[in-house]
């Protein structure tokens, strides 16, 4: 997801624009009117039957692996009618699971938002030693298995962990309680926003911020009025993905939760319990809430992505050495 921005930018910045390249080679001007044009088009695409076969195979793959599972969630949830569906959602345990999921996301997303902005500012705006190492470390939670992520907090705060005896002496519960769930959620959603912002802010460069500072703006003013409008869509994109993962995390939360019904169950954990108790309709009803969340996420994400790409393009289309009198197209941003 986020990885698609960086290569796009580098490529489009360094490569000549296609028209320029064609002109430089004298391509179009030498063309004789009719025949070669057709041959060129034929050379850069496939025969119709190849095209249609490839499209069909790709769509079949997408249908089998993406559309069917999504459809199955809603079908299974409504198997016994709308009444049973609503009843499953009105259960008190389901409500407490919803509440806990919202709490975990409400803590994790803002924390990682502040971190993401700070990390992107430090990494994108300055040169310093160890920068690429730091960027790798920021990515680390992505590659750690969720189960391992949960385990490391058990080792820190569990009854036999480093701080276990001290926490017990002070009657503070972290593992098998809400704080542990929040911590595990923060860990697995850690890099989302930073990863979105770093390539974007690197692409946009420092010129606008420097101009603002030279004109007498304070650091905060520069951030609020210059940087933030430029990174708005990338920020929304990161937040929405971070939120989806925070609400949907299963493995890490499962390790630290203890599965106490009505107390330490998030929505995904509640789905698991219902499913293992063979309450299929209820399990899928709760799962359908998460599926709706996923669809809303995809919708907002698509919109943010279109705007975000426009921002990236605006930044990438700037000539490398921009004359200082040209107003920045990136700065005019989408209203």
């Amino acid at each position: 997801m986020s990885d698609k921005q960086a290569p796009t930018l580098v490529a489009s910045r360094t490569a000549l624009p296609p028209e320029g390249a064609a002109l430089a080679r004298g391509g179009p001007s030498r063309r004789t009117p009719a025949q070669p044009v057709r041959r060129v088009t034929a050379g850069t695409t496939e025969a119709p039957w190849v095209r249609y076969t490839l499209i069909a195979v790709a769509l079949l793959f997408v249908f089998l692996f993406l559309v069917l599972p999504l459809a199955a969630v809603f079908t299974e949830a409504l198997r016994k009618g709308f009444g049973a569906y609503l009843a499953a959602l009105q259960e008190p345990d389901a409500w407490s699971a919803i509440k806990l999921t919202l709490i975990a996301a409400a803590v994790a997303v803002p924390l990682n938002l502040v971190f993401g902005v700070a990390a992107a500012w430090a990494i994108a705006k300055y040169e310093f030693r160890g920068k690429s190492f730091l960027t790798t470390l920021v990515d680390l939670p992505f590659s750690v298995s969720p189960v391992v992520a949960g385990l490391i907090y058990v080792l820190l705060f569990g009854a036999q962990g480093w701080f276990g005896p001290w926490l017990q002496a002070h009657d503070i519960k972290i593992i098998f309680a809400v704080p542990g769930i929040v911590l595990a959620t923060v860990f697995v959603t850690f890099p989302f926003i930073a990863r979105e912002l770093i390539p974007l802010m690197q692409a946009q460069g420092n010129d606008e911020e420097q101009a603002a500072i030279v004109l007498g703006a304070t650091g905060w003013q520069t951030f609020w009025h210059v940087t933030l409008p430029n990174i708005k869509w990338g920020l929304i994109y990161g937040v929405i993905l971070c939120n989806a993962r925070a609400m949907g995390e299963f493995g890490a939360v499962s390790v630290v939760s203890g599965h106490i019904r009505g107390q330490t169950n998030t929505l995904p954990l509640h789905v698991e319990i219902l499913y293992n108790e063979y309450q299929s309709v209820a399990a899928f009803a709760v799962a359908s809430l998460l599926a709706i969340l996923a669809l809303v996420t995809l919708a907002i994400k698509s919109v943010a992505e279109w705007r975000h790409e426009a921002d990236m393009k605006a930044a990438a289309d700037l000539p490398p050495e921009r004359p200082s009198f040209v107003p920045s197209p990136a700065g005019s941003g989408p209203g």
């Binding site: 969630v73 989806a244 949907g248 995904p268 789905v271 698991e272 998460l290 996420t297 995809l298």
Partner: peptide, 23 residues
Amino acid sequence: VDALVDLPFALPTAVAGISLTAL
């Protein structure tokens, strides 16, 4: 289809698990 490709990022894994099993 382009938007749907990201579904596995957005759909909680537990939901994907029970849904694929049901299929």
